[in-house]
Amino acid sequence: MSATPQIQSSISSLKEILVIVTGLTITTSLFAVVTGGQLTGVRSLTEIEPMGALSFVVLLLNVIRFYIGNVRTLDDFYGQPELTNERKGSIGLDFSVILLTGVIFGLMSFYLYDWASFYILFCAILAVDIIWLFLIQNDTHDPAIRATRRKWYVNNIFHLVVLLIFLGPSLGRHVGNNEVVTPLWVLLAFSAVALSNTIFDFWLSRAFYFPKLPKYTEPTK
């Protein structure tokens, strides 16, 4: 099955949407960090709250890895002259999942200082990615792609379970006048687990995210 111009156009549009969502996410995140979550006034660098900056780092690294991963996935599947039978009819699913992931990232950028909401949304992204990987697990026979997906799958499941079971019950407890307070150690633990998930992903899938250039060989005379 040939990759028709319509399919190529749809994939190009999806990647452009992804770029827009990614740009808005990073812009809003930076704005939230320098204003302390307020819509007016800009703080000096010495007044930026450490937890807000830490949330921004978590968000930025994950936006980068999901952006690279999603664009590479689209190029690998739909950027080829011929599409495999397994990918027929999958563009709707891919479009929906990638767009949903981008929207969730956009929402996260508004909650850098509402840590309970921020990490609930982070867990939602991991859950969406796990479900997507499960649904498309049999759509390729390429051993390299399957190996990369297994690494994503195991890494995300492990860290999502840690976040939900061990830290989830402590995230945002009602005290006093129905005020929600999250202990500092929980926020630090959530950040550590989120960064662990991200760093392990970059390390385990480094050949996928950042493929090496082919070795240069002297042309034969």
Rank of each mutant, 00 (worst) to 15 (best):
N62W: 02
Q6R: 14
N70D: 14
S90V: 07
E218D: 12
G168F: 11
H159N: 12
P5A: 14
G172F: 09
I20T: 14
T27Q: 08
I136C: 03
S44Q: 13
I157M: 13
I104Y: 06
T22A: 15
L163C: 10
L99D: 06
L60D: 01
V57A: 08
T27A: 14
G52W: 04
L107A: 07
L112A: 06
G102D: 04
T40S: 10
V162K: 09
T182R: 07
A144I: 05
G69R: 02
M51H: 07
K88D: 09
K151G: 00
K212S: 05
R149C: 00
L54E: 01
S90Y: 05
I125Q: 01
G172K: 07
P169Q: 08
R43H: 09
V71W: 06
T22W: 08
F200I: 02
R43Q: 10
L184P: 03
Y78M: 13
I104Q: 05
A124P: 02
Q80H: 09
N62T: 14
L164F: 10
K221H: 08
F122K: 01
L60Y: 07
S29C: 11
F190S: 05
R65M: 10
Y209C: 02
L100I: 15
F190V: 02
V33K: 04
T46S: 13
S9L: 15
I98E: 03
F134N: 06
N62F: 04
V71R: 05
A127I: 03
L107K: 04
L107H: 01
S205W: 00
N62H: 11
L133V: 00
A124M: 13
Q137N: 06
V181M: 03
I145Y: 02
T217Q: 15
T73A: 11
I130V: 11
G92R: 14
V193M: 04
L112Q: 03
A192K: 12
N178M: 11
V34C: 02
N177R: 14
Y153R: 12
R72D: 03
S191P: 08
V21D: 02
G23L: 11
T220L: 12
L204A: 08
N85Y: 10
V58E: 00
V128L: 06
D76H: 10
P81F: 12
Y78C: 04
T22D: 07
E86F: 13
S96F: 15
G69S: 13
P50F: 12
N197G: 01
K15F: 09
H141F: 03
T25R: 01
E86V: 05
G168Y: 06
G69I: 01
F134V: 09
A147Q: 10
H159C: 06
L126V: 01
V154L: 10
L187M: 08
D139N: 07
I165M: 14
R149S: 05
K215R: 09
R87E: 04
A124F: 12
L100R: 10
D94V: 14
T4G: 11
L188R: 13
V193G: 03
S12R: 14
T25D: 00
I64C: 08
E218L: 12
F77A: 08
L14M: 15
N155A: 01
A192L: 14
Q6S: 15
H159W: 05
L135M: 13
P183Q: 10
K88V: 13
L187R: 10
W152I: 01
S10V: 14
V71D: 06
T73H: 03
L74A: 09
P50L: 11
M51L: 11
S196C: 06
E86S: 15
V97Q: 07
L164G: 08
L59F: 04
E16K: 11
